[in-house]
Design a protein around this nucleic acid. Sequence first.
DNA 1: CCGCATCCCTTGGGATACTG
DNA 2: CAGTATCCCAAGGGATGCGG
Lengths: 122, 122
Amino acid sequence: MFGHIDYRNPPELCPVRDVMSVASDQWSILILLWLGYFSVLRFNKLKKYVYGISNKVLSQRLKVLEADGYIERKAYPEVPIRVEYNLTEFGRLYVDKLLDLAEWMHDNSPKVMANRKRYGLE
Amino acid sequence: MFGHIDYRNPPELCPVRDVMSVASDQWSILILLWLGYFSVLRFNKLKKYVYGISNKVLSQRLKVLEADGYIERKAYPEVPIRVEYNLTEFGRLYVDKLLDLAEWMHDNSPKVMANRKRYGLE
DNA sequence: CCGCATCCCTTGGGATACTG
DNA sequence: CAGTATCCCAAGGGATGCGG
């Protein structure tokens, strides 16, 4: 344990592992970052920005992120229907952390790449 | 793009996505956190703490983390062989960020869980 | 003890077509 | 337009046994 967190448990018994598995999922991170950048995005815009994501995965991730309280979904009953996604206040807090992390990775990716090369992988 | 990072690219063209895919992998995170906590760990200890990980995945993640420069592997040619893993200086920097994130998730997991319940999932 | 090699299996996820 | 439903595939990952 680190202070009070015990990762030495399966996800069912460790909320942190559980929460983390959603929040640090690759696709979810990208979704959150783009929502942070644009504030509001519709399904197909999101799909365009989160390059390579499929319909299925996008809608699945959006549902989970909504359930966990990171994002908000608003549907306007027009024809054709219009749906908008945006961060909640909670989600915004998390995105700030993600941005910090992303910035760090950007700054250090050259180092990582150099390491890989030297190591012989890739 | 956020400043200068363009996530709107496949991982091959976006180093950040690439680096992130290693660094924010679920198993890798747990490995790094435990190494941060104990400073030095041997293979089987690691396997014990990173609950649920298999031989195969553990050794694969260790190799990648080493290649990317987060950890260091030292093999002592005894019989039977002894191998120790520890963070590099670079890895330590990253773990500090992870710890911050983990702390945040710990603090907020009740909120997330409550959200989920209210949402009806799970 | 470390960790590779094997085998097998599950399941995440891609592509596409379709509907409210 | 926003998603669901379907089908299908590749690959990640678990368990185990062996070898250095």
